[in-house]
């Protein structure tokens, strides 16, 4: 894997060799983000004082819930759409990861804004383990409504950590056929985690793996492989 670029995984969706900055900017590539033409929508209805979605208070949807069925259908379509455009399982997982990455960057921004903006002493996680705990509980709660089930540290490799979810909500209705058994749709979640890690300043490569047990048939492990620079910095901070 090429780690030289800051975000090599952001360029997966397109074949053009644009710089990764272009992908992060919604205005630079309107085809990818298909921004609604918001001003015209508002001006068409002068009588309706409905606020633009971009002007809405971000705290408004803080405690509102999303239909799990609607999400399941949407995610199912995402997987089907993606599957039609890839050549193999690795490719499919990478694309799901990329889609998750876009969510992860926003999740972190929103979470930090909600949690720290009202605080008198806003803080940012700079040590790795508290950051991992933040993902395990806060990010999981923001995205899935519950904390993940466990954090583990690899025995063999010092740079590998695992977040374990016994029953990932996004996979609840998915039965992967036998000939694709190594596919884990939680690659989407892995993308979210990777984005949060990247944005917190812990560049890592994150993948998802099925680790079923008899009690939890859809148990999934999110494997975080940290870049060496992170470990070196942790060493210095000790």
């Amino acid at each position: 894997m090429a780690y030289a670029q800051p975000h090599p995984r952001l360029s997966v969706l397109s074949n053009t060799s644009q710089s990764s900055i272009d992908h992060l900017s919604p205005t630079a590539s309107s085809t990818r983000f298909s921004l609604p033409s918001a001003p015209s929508v508002v001006s068409n209805k002068p009588s309706a004082p409905r606020p633009n979605i971009y002007d809405r208070n971000l705290n408004k949807t803080r405690v509102s819930e999303v239909s799990a069925s609607a999400f399941s259908f949407l995610f199912s379509e995402i997987v089907q759409y993606t599957q039609k455009r890839v050549s193999g399982i690795n490719d499919l997982e990478r694309r799901l990861n990329t889609l998750g990455y876009r969510i992860g960057t926003r999740v972190l921004e929103l979470m930090v804004w909600r949690a720290e903006s009202s605080s008198k002493t806003p803080k940012r996680e700079i040590r790795f383990l508290p950051a991992l705990m933040l993902i395990h509980t806060q990010v999981w709660k923001a995205v899935f409504g519950k904390a993940a089930d466990a954090i583990e540290k690899s025995v063999e490799n010092a740079d590998e950590y695992m977040i374990i979810d016994n029953d990932p909500p996004i996979e609840r209705h998915i039965s992967v056929p036998r000939d694709m058994s190594q596919l884990s749709c939680s690659s989407f979640t892995a993308g979210i985690v990777e984005a949060v890690m990247d944005c917190l300043g812990f560049p890592a490569r994150v993948t998802a793996h099925n680790t079923p047990t008899t009690q939890f048939p859809s148990r999934t492990t999110i494997l975080i492989k940290l870049e060496k620079s992170v470990l070196d910095r942790e060493e210095l901070l000790k």
Partner: peptide
């Protein structure tokens, strides 16, 4: 509705081969 229609690997109107549905 849950285990078949929400499963991305099921093709509508085709035979159901979903472990989740069996379970």
């Amino acid at each position: 509705a849950d285990a078949v229609m929400k499963n991305p690997f099921h093709t509508p109107e085709m035979p159901i081969r979903s472990e989740g549905f069996d379970t």
